[in-house]
Amino acid sequence: MTPRVFSPLVLLLVIAFLIGPFFIIVAASLSGGETLAFPPQGFSLKWVAKVFTVESFRESFAVSMFLAIGGTAMALVLGIPASYALSRYKLPFGETVRTIVSLPIIVPGIIVGLALLRYIVVPFGFNITLALFLAHTALVLPYAVRVVSASLNNLRSDIEEAAVLLGSSRAGAFFRVVMPNIRSGILAAFILGFVTSFNQVPVSLFLSGPGVRTLPIDMLSYMEITYDPSVAALSALLAFMSIGIVFLAERFLGFSRYV
């Protein structure tokens, strides 16, 4: 068999393997039956509707949203100045700083969660929400620094000097000249951070308490109790949300340039 015939067939199988399960989830969630099954037994939107009525899903969705938005915003507040310092200044220990802020990407999340629980949350009596917020911020920080740095490195630094020579202060030059030009990079970092944080499981495993847990964790524990298609419906909804966000980001920002 020559590659000319062989290639499209392989590609078809690979794409089916990668995307197929997603369609099965969608189909299963539209089932009229009581248990998870494929092909679906009849058609109904009842499981999709049920997702919105499950109290714990609503609560954990709010928690996950708060973490994804708040944690990413916090990571950007810390990460933008750090990226700026790393790209524009001769920073003493610059490489060390870069390594420290990038480490959370390398260390498995479950370890970060456990360490945070044991040595910060318990001894200092932090509440779980705060701990989750800190953990998600740390988790998103490397992405924020990486994407914003890439954006800054694509921008000439002499425009800041030009702004200063035209009478602007250093800080003024940053806000008038740098910020407007890295805006789409920051937005891209925000979206990447949001999706990463929202889908993140291991870091939150140990960080759950009464009434406070992230949505993916809630889904995991719901699955242990019930075998109905509502988790499939929720999974499908979340997948559509992520895909929608990324699609819009690519459409309007050229997201893939930054990631």
Binding site: L155, R156, D158, I159, E161, A162, A163, V164, L165, L166, G167, S168, S169, V177, P180, N181
Partner: peptide, 19 residues
Amino acid sequence: SANRRSVGLVFQSYALFPH
């Protein structure tokens, strides 16, 4: 400081503000 000197500079790369 540079912003109070009344000195103009035309950069080699022009350094125009792209936005």
